[in-house]
Amino acid sequence: MISGEELETTVMELIINAGESKSCAMEALNAAKTGKWEEVDQLLTLSLEASKRAHKVQTALIGLDGGQGKVPVNLIMVHAQDHIMTAMLAKEMIEEMINIHRIIQGK
């Protein structure tokens, strides 16, 4: 069983990494608009790394729970799950928009 303090720290780590992933992806989209392709690629790499960290935390939480309700579900946990899912969706959509920019700009 995970302690309340450990859970809070873990959930905050999930939120921070998911937010970083989404922010880097948004910055990459802004860089794509002006054709800064090296910056785009760096930011997408940072976004992917943050996304992997968030997913690793999420997977650890799922493993701790084992489908048996060992990890309490509270509002902050729901908020964290919302963050990771919206960040993942935003990243996927942003990557598609960047690919459209690449095509339009001939890159």
Rank of each mutant, 00 (worst) to 15 (best):
M1V: 06
M1W: 07
M1K: 03
I2Q: 10
S3N: 13
G4V: 13
E5R: 09
L7Q: 13
L7F: 12
L7K: 15
L7A: 04
E8T: 10
T9N: 14
T9S: 07
T10H: 13
T10G: 07
M12V: 04
E13A: 04
L14K: 02
I15V: 09
I15C: 05
I16K: 03
I16Y: 05
G19S: 07
E20W: 06
S21N: 03
K22D: 07
S23M: 01
S23P: 00
M26R: 15
M26D: 13
E27K: 14
E27L: 04
E27S: 09
E27Y: 10
E27M: 00
N30A: 11
A32K: 09
A32Q: 08
A32R: 12
G35S: 05
W37M: 04
E38R: 10
E38P: 05
D41L: 08
D41I: 06
Q42T: 00
L43I: 05
L43P: 00
L43R: 04
L46T: 02
S47T: 08
S47E: 07
S47K: 02
L48I: 04
E49R: 15
E49I: 07
A50G: 10
K52M: 00
R53A: 08
H55N: 14
K56F: 06
V57Y: 09
V57P: 01
V57E: 05
T59Q: 04
L61Y: 01
L61T: 06
G63F: 12
G63P: 09
L64H: 13
D65Q: 00
G66E: 07
G67K: 04
G67C: 08
G67T: 08
Q68K: 06
Q68R: 09
Q68F: 13
Q68T: 14
Q68D: 11
K70M: 11
K70T: 12
V71T: 08
V71A: 09
V71L: 07
P72I: 12
P72R: 13
V73I: 14
N74E: 09
I76N: 10
I76Y: 11
I76C: 08
M77A: 12
V78Y: 11
V78M: 14
V78N: 09
H79Y: 14
H79W: 11
A80C: 15
A80Q: 03
Q81L: 15
D82G: 11
D82W: 11
I84G: 02
M85F: 12
M85P: 01
M85L: 10
M85D: 13
A87T: 15
L89P: 01
L89D: 01
A90T: 04
E92Y: 13
E92M: 07
E92C: 12
M93D: 08
I94S: 02
E95C: 03
E96N: 12
I100S: 11
I100E: 09
R102E: 04
I104P: 04
Q105I: 09
Q105V: 02
K107N: 07
